[in-house]
Amino acid sequence: MKKKELSLDKDGKFDISFVLNAKELKVKISGDETLLELIRRLGYKGTKKGCDTGDCGSCTVIVNKKATLSCIIPAFLVDGCEVTTIEGIGSISNPHPIQEAFVEAGAVQCGYCVPGMIMSTKALLDENGSPSDEEIKHALDGNLCRCTGYVKQIEAVNIASKKIKK
């Protein structure tokens, strides 16, 4: 449940609670901590730190169904919210269709941007199951890739869309 105010505890931390990858969590945070710092501190290191200024999209997670830049939002803003990271959608042994599609399309080279790309794709496909190429480009326009380019990802999203529909 969302709180109306948060105060420092005796250790100089704030208590927040939120749902991370379908798991309810209560954690202590500092006031200057970003969501990215928090989720990586909690061990979810699939979410990457790239630019740290909201420009590259490597840190993309889903907050309340929207793809969100975790590097620029304060951790306290997710109190009472639902957050999903790359670990929350699939694993090596049980990958999500989007993850499979990225591999199949060869949309992964160094892989650094891929968790962010996949989270943006997840948010897109949850909202629009059959996006056009233009809609895919538009939805992924905040996720920068410096080695694969931007063609294979579009192919991957199209493959994922078909896989999810099956």
């Binding site: 709180k3 109306k4 105010e5 948060l6 105060s7 420092l8 109190d79």
Partner: peptide
Amino acid sequence: MKIKKIYFP
């Protein structure tokens, strides 16, 4: 920064 209080009105 040393945030001591956070409000969600």
